[in-house]
């Protein structure tokens, strides 16, 4: 079936040429074509890009946009996901619960902690390291790059397993720190910190390499010009390099804000299940539990839509803010 569609694509793709190139030189070779009403011919000529987009758009429609619409619908109902049980319309009841449930408020607070806690490891420290190493050349640089990047490639379950072993009461971390048999992941005080540390370990190298690449993209001329004018190394960094690096840094910030809750998800699922006493859970993990453990699809959908809206607003604000600052600088 695809074969047929694509033969048509090739055919109409060739048809488009006379129209675009001006002069219907090749068309008279086929008298039938010339007799076609111009509107239909133009429609055929306009078709190819849409046909190329079709498979991708179909995937998006079926697996992304239709589910979003259905999530909005579900959020107004009470339903336990079983085909046999009825859906009851409950209006804004689910949304009211989203904003009043203490469990969700705790999860939102944890999510905020994850975001704030990861910013130093996704932006500040990587920027400092990238600035520090930018003059290193050659082979040593390649080796460091290769080593630093390794955590990013590790399967999430393997990462979780290794860290659970490192942080085991009898593991090497306690051994090295001389802490006896402290259980990092089972104590309310340290569980969130432990998850944060593992996540930081995963993204630090990646962030450093992204920011390093951003630095290489900046022409050295600006810094040289500033140095000629007598600017110190720090002044050049602060007033020339960092502003030019802004779009890279903003991108990392956006990633951190939007994806912190996703990055921590597998760790939560494997290491703590959100505990102890909900001290590590984040908004998405709780949502998953509502949906697939408590089978409260309405609440899960309402929470999903709400969090999505909040994240989207924050992202839009960040982009806008960056725009304004870039104007101030220029």
């Amino acid at each position: 079936m695809f074969q047929i569609v694509f033969v048509e694509v090739a055919y109409s793709g060739a048809l488009r040429v006379p129209g675009a190139g001006g002069g219907a030189v090749t068309v008279p070779a086929r008298p039938v074509e010339a007799l076609r009403p111009p509107l239909a011919r133009r429609a055929v000529a306009a078709l190819p890009p849409y046909l190329y987009l079709l498979p991708g758009l179909a995937c998006l429609a079926v697996w992304t946009y239709k589910p979003v619409i259905e999530a909005v619908q579900l959020s107004f109902y009470h339903w336990n996901l079983l085909p046999t049980s009825p859906r009851t319309y409950v209006g804004f009841e689910n949304y009211k619960r989203v904003f009043t449930l203490p469990q969700l408020r705790g999860a939102a607070k944890n999510t905020l902690w994850y975001i704030l806690g990861l910013i130093p490891f996704a932006i500040i420290l990587p920027t400092a390291i990238a600035l520090g190493i930018r003059n290193l050349g050659g082979r040593s640089r390649t080796t460091y790059r290769a080593l630093i990047f390794l955590p990013m490639l590790m399967a999430p379950v393997a990462t979780a397993a290794v860290w659970r072993w490192l942080l085991d009461p009898q593991g090497i971390v306690n051994h090295a720190l001389g802490l006896g048999s402290y259980n990092w992941l089972r104590e309310e005080r340290t569980a969130l910190l432990a998850i944060l540390a593992i996540c930081a370990w995963q993204i630090l190298g990646f962030a450093t390499l992204v920011i390093s690449a951003g630095l290489t993209g900046i022409s050295a001329d600006y810094a040289e010009a500033a140095e000629m004018d007598g600017a110190s190394r720090w002044q050049v960094t602060r007033w020339v390099t960092l502003p030019l690096l802004r779009s890279t840094l903003l991108f990392m910030l956006l990633m951190t804000v939007l994806l912190s809750a996703q990055w921590t998800f597998p760790l939560l699922d494997i290491l703590t299940q959100g505990g102890p006493a909900d001290s590590t859970t984040n908004v998405y993990y709780l949502l998953w539990e509502y949906g697939f453990r408590s089978l409260d699809s309405g609440l899960a959908s309402a929470a999903g839509i709400s969090f999505f809206a909040v994240f989207a607003v924050v992202a839009a604000l960040l982009v806008k803010l960056a725009d304004r600052y870039s104007f101030a600088d220029n």
Partner: peptide, 20 residues
Amino acid sequence: AFVATWLIPFQVTMISNYLV
């Protein structure tokens, strides 16, 4: 429409995709 999917978290679509 393609770019925006990057913003839509998986957790919003998972229930209905699961049902499908």
